[in-house]
């Protein structure tokens, strides 16, 4: 089995300092990994049942979610990883 590139893995699981708008979402936690944050957002969607009942691929954002997903009222599930990527920019070498 192919192993993932260690740098990519590190980018996903290393703790990063969250900017202030994300801190509100995580309930005051100041550090979180990229992957942890993604799972956090996804479970937020599941817990609050934010998926559109007619089309499960769409998410109707609540205020909390809006604050971190560029202020959109509705996002597609497929763009969720990309949207979250913006908060975790690649480290300059």
């Amino acid at each position: 089995m192919l192993k993932e590139c260690p740098k990519k893995v590190a980018r996903l699981i290393d703790l990063a300092n969250l900017p202030s708008n994300l801190r509100e979402f995580t309930g005051g936690q100041s550090q979180m990994s990229h992957l942890g944050f993604f799972i956090r957002v996804w479970s937020h969607i599941k817990i609050h049942k934010l998926q559109d009942p007619n089309n499960k691929n769409l998410v109707n954002c609540d205020d909390k979610l809006k604050s971190i997903l560029l202020g959109k009222t509705q996002v597609e599930l497929s763009e969720l990883p990309t949207l979250i990527n913006f908060h975790f920019p690649k480290q300059p070498k």
């Binding site: 993932e4 996903l12 699981i13 992957l35 990883p81």
Partner: peptide, 8 residues
């Protein structure tokens, strides 16, 4: 988690 997320 990492490999699951990466594939997705």
């Amino acid at each position: 988690d990492v490999s699951a997320y990466t594939a997705l």
